[in-house]
């Protein structure tokens, strides 16, 4: 068991290094570099000045040396310096990670909760209105792009019926403090979290319904009924724990999607998280920031996979044995 964990962890580290190198190479391949943008904002420069700047940032050296230098710094916890924001990237990310985690966490948890409930109920009455509603909603959720859903929700709940704020994370006057501030943030959280949750719901509700349907037909559920267990125990003890497995696995493996969804939703709602930061840094050709965010995201995805692995082991004893 301990041995297995060590292997998993070292695999994860290797994976992260590979992701880093790949990210670096991909960004290098894309046209344009930070110096061009910088020069553009300075209002032009002579070719000598540009070459100087390139040399200053180490951009004139061969790619593999740049990568090695970057890797060396990352190992020491240094993700570089953002030219545009004039701040170390680690500081920049640290300042933005809170809002993103709040948004993604809220959306993910509520989506999993709601979809489990939907799955349980719709699977028991598979010809009911609720059951068909799950299918339709999930189809719609799959097909509708996140930003569009976000904009429609804004039009509905902020413009037509103005009960929720359009964007941002807190009211601009900044007067609120303490409990009022928390409530203010929560008020702003509703719309983006709802939008993001709808995307996940589309993924998970179908899955949890299908999985529940399958489990309800299984021999061990029949055994549970034949033993004379009350319905509550049959459903929530015997069926649900087995049915939830694929949902947990899927949610863990799809965590990358979760982050990319967050980028779109944060942008639409001007939510001051990593997503907006990523979006801005792409526009500004702010390579260090972008690389930093990509690296940080991959760390989160890998961590999430490890966590999923752990959870699945807790739920299903069969996996421990293998």
């Amino acid at each position: 068991m301990l041995n297995g964990s060590v292997i998993k962890l070292s695999n994860a580290v290797l994976l992260l290094i590979a992701v880093l190198i790949l990210n670096f190479a991909l960004i290098h391949v894309a046209p344009g570099d930070p110096v061009e943008v910088l020069v553009g904002e300075m209002g032009g420069a002579t070719p000598e000045q540009i070459a100087d700047l390139r040399a200053h940032f180490g951009l004139d050296r061969p790619l593999y040396i740049q990568i090695a230098t970057y890797l060396g710094r990352v190992v020491q916890g240094d993700l570089g310096y953002s030219l545009y924001y004039d701040q170390p990237v680690t500081q920049l990310i640290a300042g933005r990670v809170g809002p993103t985690l709040l948004l993604v966490g809220t959306a993910l948890l509520s989506a999993i909760l709601v979809c489990t409930v939907l799955g349980v109920f719709s699977a028991q009455k598979r010809r009911s209105v609720l059951s068909h509603l799950v299918t339709v909603l999930s189809l719609a959720g799959f097909s509708a792009p996140a930003f569009w859903v976000g904009i429609m929700l804004i039009l509905l709940l902020s413009v037509a019926i103005p009960i929720l704020p359009i964007s941002g994370m807190s009211s601009s006057d900044g007067a609120a403090s303490g409990v009022m501030y928390v409530l203010d943030v929560l008020h702003h959280l509703i719309l983006p979290a709802l939008t993001l949750a709808l995307i996940y719901l589309a993924f998970y509700s179908r899955l949890s319904r299908a999985s529940m349907l399958e489990v309800l037909e299984s021999d061990y559920v029949r055994t549970a009924r034949a033993k004379g267990l009350p319905r509550r125990l049959v459903i929530y003890k015997h069926a649900l724990r087995n049915a939830v497995l694929p949902v947990v696995t899927f949610a863990g493996l799809q965590f990358g999607q979760v982050i990319s969804g967050a980028v779109l939703v944060e942008t639409v709602f001007a939510w001051p998280g990593l997503g907006t930061l990523a979006f801005e840094s792409i526009l500004r050709r702010d390579t260090p920031t972008l690389l930093g965010i990509l690296f940080f995201s991959s760390v989160m995805v890998v961590a999430m996979n490890l966590l999923t692995d752990f959870l699945v082991r807790r739920i299903d004893p069969r996996i421990k044995a293998q």
Partner: peptide, 14 residues
């Protein structure tokens, strides 16, 4: 009470 045909799948794995 009842004993079923399929002992491999009739017990809850978890």
């Amino acid at each position: 009470s009842m004993v079923f045909q399929e002992p491999m799948t009739s017990l809850n794995p978890v």
